[in-house]
Amino acid sequence: MKKPPAIPEDICFCPLSGILDVIAKKWALLIIAILGNEGEKGFNELKRELGCISPKPLSDTLKNLERIGLVSKKVLGTSPPTVKYSLTPEGWELRDHLIPMLVWVSEHGGQDMPGCPIRARKHP
């Protein structure tokens, strides 16, 4: 594993307050992981993969991820309209930064859930 870039000694953590409020929510990182592994997904596909999430929290989380620029929403001109969600370049970048953290957690006592459907895969 390569060494992370040096962090400046004087760095402001204030920008975390906006984005951390969104990505620290229960489902946000799982949604980012699924979209990162599998590309575009519809609302019901995400709901099915996440298992026990109800529509309201999924909808709210997707709206928040879209609002901060991590997820994009594409409405297809079908009847009824089909909506697909995918990661933005910023969403891919965040996902790439999360993987080393997950490796660290795994090496320091974090446990995989049996049959875990969310695995890190390289993005295109």
Rank of each mutant, 00 (worst) to 15 (best):
M1C: 09
K2W: 10
K3E: 15
P5C: 08
P5A: 11
I7T: 14
P8D: 15
I11T: 11
C12I: 01
C12D: 15
C12T: 10
P15E: 01
L16C: 09
G18M: 02
I19F: 07
I19C: 00
L20F: 13
L20V: 00
V22F: 03
A24H: 14
A24N: 14
W27M: 02
W27H: 13
L30C: 01
L30M: 06
I34Q: 14
N37E: 15
E38P: 00
E38R: 12
E40Y: 08
E40N: 05
N44S: 10
E45R: 10
L46C: 07
L46A: 07
R48L: 09
I53A: 07
P57I: 08
P57W: 08
L58V: 06
L62Q: 01
K63H: 03
L65C: 01
L65E: 01
L65A: 07
R67I: 02
G69A: 03
L70I: 01
S72D: 13
K73E: 14
L76Q: 05
G77V: 01
P80L: 15
V83W: 06
V83L: 06
Y85I: 03
S86F: 05
T88G: 06
P89M: 10
G91I: 03
W92F: 01
W92R: 08
E93S: 12
L94N: 02
R95Y: 15
H97N: 14
I99W: 14
P100N: 11
P100I: 06
M101W: 12
V103A: 08
V105Q: 06
E107P: 00
H108D: 09
H108I: 06
G109P: 01
G109V: 10
G110V: 11
Q111I: 15
M113K: 04
G115H: 09
C116R: 07
R119N: 08
R121V: 01
R121H: 05
R121S: 11
K122C: 02
K122N: 10
K122V: 01
H123D: 09
